[in-house]
Design a protein around this nucleic acid. Structure first.
Lengths: 226, 226
DNA sequence: CCCAAACTGTTTATGGCGTAAGCAAAACTG
DNA sequence: CAGTTTTGCTTACGCCATAAACAGTTTGGG
């Protein structure tokens, strides 16, 4: 399976040519997950899309979880190169924004990437770009990776939260939560005062990202233009 | 269902007394998830534990997803009060550390809390404590909540990562990833240099938390002892 | 006090899921 | 042209959540 993920295709020999390719299947699965969510991608429904039965897909992919792993790497895509000329800070901000956009296009990604699973080459390329951007900061190697992972965690959390509220049922949930909060106002004075779930005209993603980047900067020995 | 979560019990009248309580069921489910993971908690296996059939549980809980919602609120528990005498920063650090510990006791929580679902009173109490700790910082209300959510996202991400590596199969995954990284060394120079997946004797949780707290501090008008 | 209403836990059944095993036909290897 | 390999399909299994109908128990209203 790791071979599939990391491109080692294996040899081709006897027997009928496979009509499909793994790439085709994975792309169709990604499209399906984008449109209907990850749980809607069942082997049966995916195979239907090609006019085949569920079992035929198992000639290409060993298990459904492996399919999901492949979907993650495909949907993430290779990380774009970063312009480091203005320093690591805008570079990392760009990185986070682009990743945020990718997660936004594939809302199921944020939940799917939170499982224990083999990491693919494209996913790893994102981490590589971020670590590279932090090269001249005086942070130690593991610290650079940790810093990238903090930003990554923030991106995922924000996408997840946004997706939850955006879901048709999410808005209703937020509304009832607001009611409940007001009913139990005495138990949550700080949240009431913060009018936490009001018509929030703010950008939680940017605020958190700024916090994290400033915090990273405070731990670097060199200035952000380094 | 929200009634169940927020404690509105409803009246008791005719018919035999229920032998079980919702609380009993939820506690058993939490214990099961702690021991075997959330997917292992099926209605059948949970009912078996009480010597009942799966369907009997539906007299207490409308759907399995609702059971999970109840499990989350129960496992989180009410947030402990914070000692703010030393300022918001150590208070928030304590908050994050305790939450981290709770997530650590219930590894399934980190994934389960990432879904769109009604938030329970105990979960909300955690947010309340953090928002309260940030009261005197000069941050706006929504900013205080955003700051708390950034820390929360970090806690979740770290727990998730730690759980992935701790899983018996996770160690093997990390090892093969290391091999692959070395095989493709040319594509990932920064990660190689960072020896990202070496015998990391560092604490990613603390590093990220420090970054975030420093970043929050940079956005406060008042000093951390406020 | 009695009985109908309400509520219990049960059985039975449905439709979905992932996937193991076996099978005919296809296509490459010698 | 064999023989072997590999394909895509059929069949089948066990598990899942949960709908529907049912029999037994308790209790409130008359």
């Amino acid at each position: 399976m790791v071979d599939l993920l990391w491109g080692r295709d294996g040899k081709r020999s006897r027997g009928p040519r496979p009509v499909l390719t793994v790439a085709q299947i994975v792309e169709a699965a990604v499209a399906m997950a984008d449109a209907e969510g990850l749980p809607a991608v069942t082997m049966q429904r995916l195979a239907e899309r090609f006019g085949y039965t569920a079992m035929s897909l198992y000639r290409y992919v060993p298990k459904r979880t492996d399919l999901v792993t492949l979907m993650i790497d495909t949907a993430l895509g290779t990380a774009p190169p970063l312009d480091a000329s203005a320093g690591w800070k805008p570079a990392l901000r760009t990185w986070a924004t682009r990743l945020h956009a990718v997660f936004g296009e594939h809302p199921w990604l944020a939940t799917a990437t939170m499982q224990a699973r083999p990491i693919g080459p494209k996913e790893l390329s994102w981490l590589e770009r971020a670590a590279a951007a932090l090269a001249g900061t005086g942070l130690t190697g593991p610290q650079r990776v940790d810093a990238a992972l903090v930003v990554l965690g923030h991106v995922r959390a924000q996408v997840q939260a946004a997706a939850g509220i955006a879901a048709e049922e999410g808005a209703a949930l937020a509304a009832t939560l607001n009611e409940l909060l007001r009913e139990h106002a005495g138990d949550y004075p700080a949240l009431i005062e913060a009018s936490a779930f009001g018509p929030a005209a703010h950008d939680g993603f940017a605020f958190g990202l700024d916090c994290i980047l400033d915090g990273i900067e405070a731990r670097t020995a060199v200035d952000p233009l380094s």
